[in-house]
Write a protein that binds this DNA or RNA. Structure first.
Lengths: 258, 258
DNA sequence: GCACAACTCTGTACGACGTACGGGATTTGG
DNA sequence: CCAAATCCCGTACGTCGTACAGAGTTGTGC
């Protein structure tokens, strides 16, 4: 019962977007004084997104929130896609640089937890895809910090990149799914349990959907479901996954440093 | 330069959707003979999506592809969101049940590779989110098969669920990002290398973006970038991640079976 | 002091989207 | 044979991003 669609973009000239991200601009100023700044627009968009989903970030909404006409936003931002990039880089600025000399495992854990928290402060963030990513200063710093965590432990450059991508990908995925579940509960007004109560009798009327056909799904699905509803859960997939991934990286590291 | 937005849904009555997924219906038939079936609509939608992105699946497009008016589709499908659910379950039918008695590691590997291939046959699939997932027969079978791979190796039910979610999540994430990158190349008409050629001089003009500020990013980013462009790559994040994750699960399994 | 260029701001408009509504056409159960 | 059920579909509404053109405002060069 849920769908996601992905807007494409990324075709445009990187020039203007990069300048905005790095705050370069403002040489000759003629014409009327601007009412706003690009940063105002970005902050307003983030406020709106934090309160709902990324869909709340429409040009018209943001403009209304700022008290200007929709088309005025195009003075500060080339378009909606670039606005999203600016939002991403902006919130990446909230990530901390991990303490030095922690050891790679503690450092990666700190990074993962920091990002987990960031995703929960900005629930729209894991929904927004970013390949050929937003080249802003904060995103650069994020990558640099991630790499620092696995520096000098015996991995080559390609492995370092893959390792941090694995960890950050895990955080994104698990955060995304936990946030999506929470959003679904809010938007449908049904908890998972209530939803299953609705769905179960319908399924029960379908011979092919009998538990006998899906013995493991029935048993494990129920156990997992009860556990998930135990309210301590949403972070479980994250903690479980992180533990496995770090153990897996540890195996690789040991191979490299016998 | 890229953005993704997530449509919400999932509020509606599960009843009709589940009936469609399980093919229950068609009792009393009065009125004119239908020109189409629900399956026709689903297949047309999949054809369209396979050739582009999920955005190509609009009610009007699908209808046009089938030679009927847009509103006619609502005879066969309650709405676009349910159509997406039907598409998902339909393609899940292409997944094979892994051979029995493979051992958990080989079985999980087979499942991961099968899904990796599925995602590449249907590039829109990893873009479509599915929490409170599409309760169709093929999706059930998918989950059942996944669980079977880790049955009886010493994990409890919650761990089994988490382990298969970790693996399938990895496949989805890595497939998604590899496909997104490929799509970006097509849609922008620029390879990553060309795009960097465009972007680099702009960044070079920005003091704060100097390589000295991001020593690891520069070095590792370049190495990883060259490797990625080596054309053998797109599956690298997948293979690397899978190896780490399986090693991590192996550690857990050993703990459970001393 | 003045004209003009550069800039900000905005109203209107276009082509997409999902889908609500209502009506005409068709088939079949009673 | 009629009425109910079911189909097909034209029209319309509200949403979106944003192209375009014009009006108002400011600094610069003379």
């Amino acid at each position: 019962m849920s769908g996601v669609s992905t807007e494409e973009n990324g075709g445009g000239d990187p020039r203007r977007a990069i300048e905005l991200l790095w705050g370069v601009s403002a040489l000759p100023r003629r014409g009327p004084k601007p009412k706003l700044t690009t940063a105002d627009v970005v902050r307003a968009a983030i406020t709106l997104a934090d309160a709902g989903t990324i869909d709340a970030v429409t040009i018209r909404h943001v403009a209304e929130h700022l008290g200007v006409a929709a088309m005025s936003l195009y003075t500060y931002v080339p378009g909606r896609a670039e606005l999203l990039d600016l939002m991403i880089d902006h919130v990446h600025g909230e990530l901390a640089a991990p303490e030095p000399d922690l050891g790679w495992r503690a450092a990666l854990t700190a990074i993962a937890e920091d990002q987990w928290a960031l995703f929960h402060r900005h629930p729209w963030l894991p929904q927004v895809a970013t390949s050929r990513s937003a080249l802003g200063p904060n995103s650069f710093a994020k990558y640099e910090n991630e790499l620092r965590a696995v520096e000098g432990i015996g991995l080559d450059d390609v492995e370092m990149d893959a390792a941090v991508a694995l960890v950050t990908g895990l955080v994104r995925t698990t955060a995304r799914s936990s946030l999506e579940a929470a959003r679904l509960v809010r938007s449908s007004g049904m908890t998972d349990a209530q939803w299953w109560e609705r769905a179960a009798p319908v399924l029960a009327g379908i011979p092919a959907a009998d538990a006998a056909h899906y013995p493991l799904s029935s048993r494990v699905g129920q156990a997992a479901g009860e556990f998930h509803n135990a309210a301590e859960d949403p972070a479980h997939a994250f903690r479980f996954g992180l533990a496995r991934v770090l153990d897996g990286i540890e195996v690789l590291v040991s191979e490299r440093q016998p």
